[in-house]
Design a protein around this nucleic acid. Structure first.
Length: 424
RNA sequence: GGAGAGAUGGCAGAGUGGUCGAAUGCGGUGGUCUUGAAAACCAUUGACCUUCACGGGUCCGGGGGUUCGAAUCCCUCUCUCUCCGCCA
């Protein structure tokens, strides 16, 4: 949620910025500013009404104490009109506040100046591409064939037990999964991210905090009886650790990492490009989350980008980095870098990580603050990224590193898998 | 699942209708003293809204109610603890 202060002072900037998302926000922002004005007026009126009635109440108390009952009862009558008035003002203020908040919630984050205007993924900028794209012959097989053939992943078995999009990993396939999780966590830890194991279900307040609710309700699995949601990413529980907290300057920056399974309903995204591991309802991901002072967040963002790059390099996977255009940048993000690895058999890029700076968009709603130099509370910046999402990494590993009779395991991973190749 | 107790400031813990944003202790910060530190002493120390400012307002788990007035009374929800049952 954008800060009302920011909009008061940066009306033009916000309108111009949001235009890069293809959004004409002028009317909404002007409505917000009007409501803000009205809300503050109602607040001031309410405050002075309450001040009057507080004063009278004290006087009544005083009179009763002195035994001057008559005068007290007379004074009581005066409060009647004040009471009515304060109730009205209270209602008016709340109504303005809700209207204002609803409009505020409807606005996405204002993109960073680096972000280019654009409608869709076609307009994303390629920042760099690293690693040679392997030229496999036409015999190159897609990962779902390799996985089934080598008994690594059973898609049908998942359908039997649960449903489509819930694969079963087995044998070396399961071991590879565990190896990758440990490898990622170790790399993140070496880079200074503290490891967490959070709950895999969150309550409503947490889902609102990171912005899954109210909009993306249909994307989460919901356990109605207990009011809980299965997490779509570790970002949700991890960021919520700090909800309503005021941190001291010397605790910053905060860097966390966590492995969790992620659950997504992916409603409406059936059909193309969802075969095999490309899109699942349950998948594994290792996430990194950071909280920084406002002036440090872009340095942190750059550091996180470099960090993810290093991991991909260790896995010998060709990758490219995209800076998403306005239209493709997520609702809550000010700037997002997507990482994609080359899928040798599908002959296309697969997104494996998304690193974003949310600035104060998340922390505003969650009230994640720190005490600045003047000892005043100030909102922190929040960032997160995948380091990394497993399924498409596995897909790329199987496809890119396939051999005549199996799959070769990258050097860096061998200490974790305990084997250097997978054969039939 | 059954029975009971409770939720107050960073923590501990008073407060059962009026001047209580809230005693006291600990902790934090600043200072005095000291070569330095400790101890001691002094001062200070919640968040939010509003105002150019003075000031005003809100917040004692959440929501609602009674009252001129609620941390204090009533209703309701959530959570925590103790005992019993069940259980990885």
């Amino acid at each position: 949620m954008l800060q009302i202060n920011y909009l008061r002072e940066n009306r033009e900037k916000a309108i111009d910025g949001l235009a890069k998302r293809g959004l004409d926000a002028q009317q909404t922002i002007d409505d917000i500013l009007t409501l803000d004005e009205q809300r503050r007026q109602a607040q001031t009126d309410l405050d002075s009404t309450l001040a009057q009635s507080n004063k009278i109440s004290k006087e009544i108390g005083e009179l009763f104490k002195q035994g001057r009952k008559e005068e007290a009862l007379k004074l009581k009558e005066k409060t009647v009109s004040l009471k009515v008035r304060s109730k009205d003002l209270q209602q008016e203020m709340e109504q303005k506040m809700h209207a204002l908040e609803n409009l505020l919630l409807s606005l996405p984050n204002v993109p960073n100046p680096l972000v280019k205007a654009g409608k869709s993924e076609a307009d994303n900028e390629e920042v760099k591409q690293v690693g040679a794209i392997p030229s496999l012959d036409d015999k190159a097989r897609p990962h779902w064939e390799i996985a089934e053939d080598l008994n690594l992943i059973k898609f049908d078995l998942g359908v039997k037990i649960t449903g489509a999009g819930f694969p079963v990993y087995q044998g070396k396939g399961a071991r590879l999964q565990r190896a990758l999780i440990n490898f990622f966590l170790d790399e993140n830890q070496k880079a200074g991210f503290q490891e967490f194991i959070p709950p895999h279900f969150v309550n409503e307040a947490s889902a609102y905090g990171t912005g899954q609710l109210p909009d993306k309700e249909g994307q989460m699995y919901h356990i109605e009886k207990d009011g809980l949601y299965a997490i779509p990413t570790a970002e949700v529980p991890i960021t919520n650790i700090f909800r309503d907290e005021i941190l001291e300057g010397d605790q910053l920056p905060i860097k966390c990492t966590a492995y969790t399974p992620c659950f997504r309903r992916e409603a409406g995204s059936y059909g193309k490009d969802v075969r095999g591991l490309n899109r699942l309802h349950q998948f594994d991901k290792v996430e990194v989350v950071a909280l920084t002072k406002p002036e440090d967040s872009y340095e942190m963002l750059d550091g996180m980008v470099v960090h993810v790059e290093k991991i991909l390099q260790k896995l010998d996977l060709p990758y490219r980095i995209l800076r998403l255009c306005g239209g493709d940048t997520g609702f809550t993000s000010a700037i997002t870098y997507d990482f994609e690895v080359w899928s040798a058999a599908q002959k296309r890029w697969l997104e494996v990580s998304s690193v974003s700076n949310f600035e104060t968009f998340q922390t505003n709603r969650m009230k994640i603050r720190f005490r600045n130099q003047e000892r005043k509370t100030e909102l922190l910046h929040s960032l997160n990224g995948s380091a990394l999402a497993l399924p498409r990494i596995v897909a790329a590993l199987l496809e890119n590193h396939q051999t005549e009779d199996g799959v070769a395991i990258p050097q860096a991973l061998q200490a974790y898998t305990g084997f250097d190749k997978i054969e039939k």
